[in-house]
Structure formats: structure tokens, C-alpha cells
């Protein structure tokens, strides 16, 4: 039953691919506009054999992961600090909210001037993009912890650390996971844009290279790889969520 449910989500994509293949074969969709799925598969084989794919995917995954870790850790730290300390919030929140309202991709020209097209530029952008959803949702999660439970914890003699570990953090966790999943989405988005504009390696670079040589199949392949990587990250986050939030009836059987 659960297995069948898991598969149901794949019926529509499979039908789309089959329809696309059929239309390509019939010549309705010209190959230079959108190559057939089989042509994309052939391109996949080609770049996989040449080692180009593994190298570029590795570079992209590394950038995504490191950028996410840096931005997520800082966002989480600020979320905790501002959720737990009124002073810290008053001191930093106004600044953070102002910075948040600048679209981080608008900083690309400045970032290129600062860092050139090296790794730092990409990491900086990814970290900046990931920072805010994690920050906001951690803060919100801590703020929305049931004050009655906090009072119970104090009445039952919990010290600050126990209160944090047993009441505040678990209470904030559902919201932190929302931030995590938003952050993962922004991570890929930022990376795609950054790699497409200025890079000498990575999936985005591979797509731009292919465009230069009119290799539509590789361009489509790159887009599909991004979609799959995004889906993979989301699946990992959901699995983590299911494990940690087993107590929550809202997550039963999700």
C-alpha cells in the first residue's frame, strides 16, 4: 500500500516523458528546440563516460553542501540567539530584516567584483541565500514553543540547558525543518544562477558550455540533473523529519 502510494507520484512524469518522446519521433518537436528523451539519455551516457558529468556534479554538490552548511549554521545560530535573548533580537533583528529584503541574487555583480568568479563567490551567495529561511524559521520555532511547557519545565526544576534540550529545541524542531527545506530549495536556485553566470566548472557551467556548441541535449540534461538533485535533497530532509518528528501525529504516515 505505502509502496503503491510512493509510486503514484511518478505516473505523471513518466507519462510526460513518453508523450515527449512520441512527439519528438513524429517530428512535432524539432530536435534543435527540444531533443527527444532518448537523445538526452544518450547525452547522459556520453558525459558520464567522459567523466565530465561526475566531475561537474561533484563540484556542484560540494558548493551546495559547503554553502548550505555555512549559511545554515549562521542562520541557526542567529535564530537561537534571537529566539532566546530579547537583547540579542533587539540588537540584530532590524539589521537582518533590512538585509533580508535585498534579493541576494542582486548582489551578483558586486560579488563578482569582490571574489571574481572563484569558489568564494558561489559559496557566499549560497550561504547568504540559505541563511534567511533557516534564521527566520528557527526564530519562529523558538518563539512558538508552548509557554505552558516552559513553565512546567521550570516548575519541575529543569536548568537552562535541560529546558533548552528537552523543551525548547524539540518544540522548535518542526519549524526548523520547514526552514531547512526552504533553505535547500534556495540553495539549488542560487547555485544554478551563480554557476550559469560565472563559473568554470559545475553543472551550470556544463549547460552554458553546451549552449555555446548548440548541444541542446546536454542543456536539457543539466536541467534534469538539477531537478533530480533538488528532489534528492528534499527527500533526505523529509526522511530526517520523519525520524525526528515521529511523536507528531501530523507526520504519521507522511
Amino acid at each position: 500500500m505505502t509502496r503503491a502510494r510512493g509510486l503514484i507520484g511518478w505516473i505523471l512524469p513518466a507519462a510526460l516523458v513518453l508523450g515527449w518522446e512520441a512527439l519528438s519521433r513524429l517530428g512535432v518537436i524539432p530536435a534543435n528546440i527540444l531533443p527527444a528523451p532518448t537523445a538526452v539519455a544518450a547525452a547522459l551516457w556520453r558525459v558520464a563516460v567522459s567523466g565530465e558529468l561526475a566531475r561537474n556534479m561533484g563540484v556542484s554538490a560540494w558548493r551546495a553542501g559547503i554553502g548550505f552548511l555555512i549559511g545554515g549554521a549562521i542562520g541557526f545560530a542567529f535564530g537561537l540567539a534571537n529566539g532566546l535573548s530579547r537583547f540579542s533580537e533587539e540588537f540584530t533583528d532590524t539589521t537582518l530584516q533590512m538585509v533580508r529584503n535585498v534579493p541576494h541574487l542582486a548582489l551578483i555583480p558586486l560579488v563578482i567584483l569582490w571574489f571574481g568568479i572563484g569558489e568564494q563567490a558561489k559559496l557566499f551567495l549560497v550561504a547568504l541565500g540559505v541563511f534567511f529561511p533557516i534564521y527566520i524559521n528557527t526564530l519562529h520555532g523558538i518563539r512558538s514553543v508552548d509557554p505552558q511547557l516552559v513553565e512546567m519545565g521550570r516548575t519541575y526544576g529543569m536548568n537552562g540547558f535541560e529546558l533548552f534540550g528537552q523543551v525548547i529545541l524539540p518544540g522548535a524542531l518542526p519549524s526548523i525543518f520547514v526552514g531547512l527545506r526552504f533553505g535547500l530549495g534556495i540553495m539549488w536556485l542560487t547555485l544554478i544562477v551563480a554557476e550559469t553566470i560565472s563559473a568554470s566548472s559545475g553543472i551550470g557551467y556544463m549547460a552554458m558550455q553546451a549552449r555555446e556548441f548548440m548541444m541542446t541535449d546536454v542543456v536539457v540534461l543539466s536541467i534534469l540533473i538539477y531537478a533530480l538533485l533538488g528532489k534528492l535533497a528534499d527527500t533526505v530532509a523529509r526522511a530526517l523529519e520523519r525520524r525526528t518528528l515521529a511523536w507528531n501525529p501530523a507526520f504519521e504516515g507522511v
Partner: peptide, 26 residues
């Protein structure tokens, strides 16, 4: 002294036995 509130105020993320253990502290 111990307090029983009007609401149960159980930690939803802790099993029942761990909720009771809260009463024992450290």
C-alpha cells in the same frame, strides 16, 4: 513540592515514561 496543572502539559516529543521521568530531574 509538585504541581499538577489544569492541562496535562506533557512533552509531546517524549514517550509517556520519559514524561514521568521529568519529575525525577537529574
Amino acid at each position: 513540592a509538585r504541581f499538577v496543572f489544569q492541562e496535562p502539559r506533557l512533552l509531546p516529543w517524549a514517550k509517556v515514561v520519559d514524561n514521568v521521568s521529568v519529575g525525577l530531574g537529574r
